[in-house]
Amino acid sequence: MTTDPREQSGFSFGEAIAKPVRFVMDLIDPPLRFLQRTTGIGGMATFFLLPNMLIFGIFVLLPFFINFAYSMTGGTALFLPDRTFVGTDQYARLFDCSNYLDANSCAEDTFWTAVGNTAWFVLLQVTLMIVVSLVTALILNRDLRARSFWRAVFFFPVLLSPVVVGLIWKWILQRQGLLNFGLYSLGFEPHVWLNDRSWSFAAAVGVSIWAHMGFYTLILLAGLQAIPRDLYEAAEMDGTKPTRVFLRITLPLLAPNLLVVIVLVLIRAVQIFDEVYVLTGGGPGTSTLFLTQYIYETGFAAQLRNPGLAAAASILMGAVLVVLTLLQLSLSRSGEKKGGRK
């Protein structure tokens, strides 16, 4: 250990940073040696795991459990001990409807509007997202020159922040925006897209697909490239039609990846918030109000904050997500067993 192996592996933070880091790390060593002598190597394992577990415990597990307690309390107080126990009143309020298909008949009508909007959004966005990313992956899997360039093209928006994505499209869809300019030069009437209930919903679906499709394309492309080439060669020799090749070879062999992607898209779609919030703010009216925004506004932003109600709604959403995540984990595990996915 005479030289820093960091440099040998071709990755260097730069000597300027490495030096103080090395100094600090060596400074911590003596007390840790002492710790190792008293607790043994097993104790050191705990030591290495501890910071992570502590942060997990405080910021993920603890909130997860006290969320249930929150959902059983009322009032506007922030801290749990100050809140009054109300049992299942918050859930009862969420489900207080005379007709479940009509949000206006519910006591908490915005909740049901958000649920309805989210359900429609999930249905539309997931279907379109799968189609668009599958087509893109299939195209990128062809015998293309500069494939990595084209792959990067579709991946670009994935890295943009939701706020930037929202603003980019808000700028394009506004009254004097690029879309209206395009329509105007083709002889159509300009339209204020985001002031229109159905168009702003369509924009929410479209923009979220634009922003994330590159990510799913990438996973599907990896799956496509794992399909053995000789299968296609054999099919070509037999003169099999492309559609038949797709249905009989590509689709069945891609199925494990496709299922994982579907569930991933579902999980993300249920939680849709950021880019739509910046793009439309949930409006006009409540036409693009989704569940996460409902929870956020009920818990933090509304004039009459109701953390208990927000917690109850978030637990209902969490239940849906848990089912979806378990589905994903079992799917990716079965995919691993078949060797379809790494």
């Binding site: 909130p63 997860f64 918030f273």
Partner: peptide, 19 residues
């Protein structure tokens, strides 16, 4: 924790962070 996204625990997490 993969199953516990922020949108699900934001209310209690906010109280813990405040505390």
């Amino acid at each position: 924790t993969l199953m516990v996204p922020l949108s699900v625990i934001m209310v209690p997490l906010y109280s813990i962070v405040s505390a």
